[in-house]
Amino acid sequence: MTFVTKLDFASGDRDVLAETVAELKTDLERKGTECKGPHASPAETVRVPQYKRLRPGDEFSPWSYDVYKRSMEIHGSDEIARDVVARDFPDSIHVEVEVDRKKPLGHRRD
């Protein structure tokens, strides 16, 4: 059975995100791990209302910022995937991890 580790990264700082993901990709390639990505998604603009008082009504113009996203997949090599997940990423990057088990083609269900 093969494990596929899916990593989703999101950040408001595009440069830190790009640098971190490129560094991770280089490390994975150096270790000989099969890796797909990073894949970029279009930036998402988030708008946050700002109220002049503690109750809704009088408002300042909304605060808006862009969120940049990248995704990667690590195939097999669950030990290296564990090392990646245990890494300390910058505080400005949100990381989500999903692990799937893939059965080989032709494998019967029991």
Rank of each mutant, 00 (worst) to 15 (best):
E29D: 15
V84C: 06
P42W: 00
H107K: 08
D13W: 11
L17P: 07
V46L: 03
P38R: 04
G106Q: 04
E29H: 00
E44A: 13
T20E: 11
G106C: 10
H107G: 07
R30I: 03
P42R: 03
T20M: 09
F60H: 04
L28E: 04
E96L: 09
S64Q: 10
A43S: 11
E59F: 04
P42S: 05
L7Y: 09
V97Q: 02
D15V: 15
M1F: 01
Y51K: 07
M72D: 01
G76E: 08
D91P: 09
D27Y: 09
P42C: 06
C35F: 12
R101P: 02
I74A: 12
V95H: 05
K102A: 07
R108H: 09
T45C: 03
R30A: 12
I80M: 12
D78Y: 12
H94R: 07
E59I: 10
A81Q: 08
P90V: 04
R108N: 13
D100I: 03
K25Q: 15
F89E: 12
R70V: 02
K25L: 13
P42N: 04
I80K: 13
L54A: 07
D100N: 13
Y68Q: 01
H75L: 15
E23Q: 14
E79S: 13
A18C: 11
E79W: 13
W63I: 07
D66K: 02
V16C: 10
P56E: 01
D15Y: 00
Y68G: 03
V48F: 01
P104Y: 02
E19K: 13
R109F: 06
P104M: 04
L105F: 05
P62I: 05
D58W: 00
H94S: 14
R82Y: 08
A18M: 15
D8P: 00
V48A: 11
G106A: 09
Q50T: 08
D83W: 14
K6V: 15
F60Q: 12
D15W: 04
S77A: 09
V85H: 02
L7Q: 14
E59C: 06
L105T: 05
V85P: 06
A86M: 14
F60L: 12
S77F: 03
E59M: 09
A18H: 15
L17W: 03
L7H: 14
T20Y: 03
R55T: 10
W63P: 01
K69N: 08
G106E: 05
R53K: 07
S77M: 02
V84R: 08
K103M: 13
A86H: 06
D100Q: 10
Y65F: 08
K25S: 14
Y68R: 03
D13M: 10
P38F: 05
P104K: 04
S61W: 04
S41F: 07
S64F: 00
S64Y: 03
C35S: 06
P56W: 00
S11P: 02
H107F: 11
L54E: 12
D58E: 11
K102Q: 09
V97C: 01
K52T: 01
P62K: 01
A43W: 08
F89H: 06
Y51C: 08
G32T: 11
V99P: 01
D100R: 13
L54G: 05
A40K: 04
K103T: 15
R87V: 02
F3E: 10
V97M: 04
R87C: 03
E19C: 02
I80S: 04
E79V: 15
T20S: 13
E34H: 15
P38L: 08
Y68P: 11
I74Y: 10
V16Q: 11
Q50I: 15
D83L: 11
